[in-house]
Design a protein around this nucleic acid. Structure first.
Length: 323
DNA sequence: TCGACATAAACTTCAGGGTT
DNA sequence: AACCCTGAAGTTTATGTCGA
C-alpha cells in the first residue's frame, strides 16, 4: 500500500468501474454514475483560492507487481497500460478535473491518494461498500458554532442565514446575564458540553425550533429577538410556574413545548403584540393548568405526539385556549 | 425543488425485580 | 434500603417520501 500525491493533470487517466444497466452481458461494475450536481459543486468549491482537499482518495491497481518505486526520484512509477481504479473519490476526482478545466486550479495542484495493489474487482467493491456504509455523518454543530462566533460563517457553504441568527439568539438565551431570568438560562447544553443537571435541551434542537421565527428574515437583530424571546418565555412561566419548577417532569420545556411555542406561537406573538402584553395574552394557559403539561398525563400535551405535525397540533390547541 | 409530514434509528429514562 | 441490571417505553434526531 502506498500513499502519494498526484497532480491534477494526471487524474484524467484513472478508471472508474461503472455499473452499466444496459450492458448486463459485459462484466458489471459497482460504481454509480457520478452525480453532476455534486461534481459541479466540488468544482465550484475551488473558486475560492484557499480551498484545500486534504482527505485522500482510494485507488487500486488490480495487477500485482506492476508498481515500481524509484528511490532516487522518490516517485512511484505506474507503467502505461496499467489501469488505476478509483475506489473511493470519484466525485472529488471529477470535481477537481472540472475545476482544472475551468482554470480554477493549476496543473500541478496535488491530490492525495492511497494506492493499494492486487485487489481484484470484487474485493475492491467490498472495500467501496465498507467505506460507504461504515462511515457515519459526524455532528458538526460544535464546528459550526465556533465559526459563527468568529464571524467565519461565510466559509460554510451550507449554513442557512437564519441559522446564524438562531445560534446567536440561543447563546443569548442560555448565557447572557441580562436575560438570566428567562426559563432557558443555563438550561441549554452547548455542543460537546458535558451534560449537567440543569440542561433540558440541546443547542441543536433549540436552534431548529427558531426556524419559523427567523426564516422570513424580518428580524435583523439577534440580541433584540433574544430579549423578546426571553420576555415571551418569562410570560409563559408566569402563567404556569409549576410546569417550570421541575422541567423534566413537564413537556413545556421539552421538544414538544419548545417547538409549539418557539416555532408556531412566537412568530404570531412577535408580530401581533408588544412584549408587555405577552403575559396577559397568555393568560389562557392558567385554564389549561400545569397538569396539561405533565409528562405522565397521557391526555395532556403528550397526546399530540412528536414530529413537527404533532407540535403544530399542540400549538393550535394551545392557541384555542388563549382565545 | 422544497417543506410538511411520516417513519426509522438512536438515545434516554423508567420500572420492576433480583442481589447485596 | 441501596444498588445494579435489563427490557420496555418514551423522547429526540436523522432520513425518506410525497405532493404542491
Amino acid at each position: 500500500m502506498y500513499i502519494a500525491v498526484v497532480p491534477v493533470s494526471k487524474l484524467d487517466s484513472f478508471s472508474i468501474d461503472w455499473w452499466d444497466p444496459k450492458n448486463v452481458v459485459k462484466r458489471r461494475g459497482y460504481q454509480r454514475k457520478p452525480d453532476d450536481r455534486r461534481v459541479k459543486s466540488i468544482a465550484k468549491y475551488f473558486e475560492k483560492k484557499t480551498s484545500l482537499m486534504p482527505v485522500a482518495g482510494l485507488v487500486n491497481v488490480r495487477e500485482s507487481g506492476k508498481l515500481k518505486y524509484n528511490n532516487k526520484k522518490k516517485e512511484l512509477v505506474i507503467p502505461d497500460g496499467v489501469n488505476i481504479w478509483v475506489v473511493d473519490m470519484q466525485h472529488r476526482l471529477k470535481g477537481l478535473v472540472k475545476a482544472r478545466e475551468d482554470g480554477l486550479v493549476k496543473d500541478d495542484f496535488l491530490f492525495p491518494v492511497v494506492i493499494t495493489e492486487g485487489m481484484d474487482q470484487v474485493r475492491e467493491a467490498a472495500q467501496f461498500y465498507i467505506i460507504n456504509t461504515k462511515s457515519k455523518k459526524m455532528d458538526v454543530a460544535l464546528t459550526r458554532r465556533l465559526l459563527i462566533e468568529n464571524d467565519l460563517i461565510k466559509d460554510i457553504s451550507d449554513a442557512k442565514p437564519w441559522e446564524i441568527e438562531a445560534v446567536q439568539i440561543t447563546i443569548d438565551m442560555n448565557q447572557s446575564s441580562a436575560l438570566r431570568e428567562n426559563p432557558w438560562h443555563d438550561a441549554i447544553r452547548r455542543p460537546n458540553e458535558e451534560k449537567r443537571n440543569p440542561h433540558v435541551a440541546t443547542e441543536k434542537s433549540f436552534v431548529s425550533s427558531l426556524r419559523q421565527l427567523l426564516i422570513a428574515g424580518k428580524y435583523k437583530q439577534p440580541h433584540q429577538v433574544a430579549k423578546r424571546l426571553a420576555n415571551f418565555w418569562s410570560a409563559i412561566r408566569e402563567n404556569v410556574p409549576e410546569a417550570f419548577d421541575d422541567p423534566r417532569r413537564y413537556m413545556i420545556q421539552k421538544t414538544s413545548g419548545m417547538f409549539a411555542f418557539n416555532f408556531f406561537i412566537a412568530p404570531l406573538f412577535f408580530s401581533k403584540y408588544e412584549d408587555k402584553e405577552f403575559a396577559k395574552r397568555l393568560a389562557g394557559l392558567k385554564r389549561l393548568k400545569a397538569d396539561f403539561w405533565k409528562r405522565s398525563n397521557k391526555r395532556g400535551a403528550r397526546r399530540f405526539g412528536t414530529g413537527i405535525g404533532g407540535y403544530s397540533n399542540l400549538a393550535q390547541f394551545v392557541q384555542k385556549h388563549l382565545g
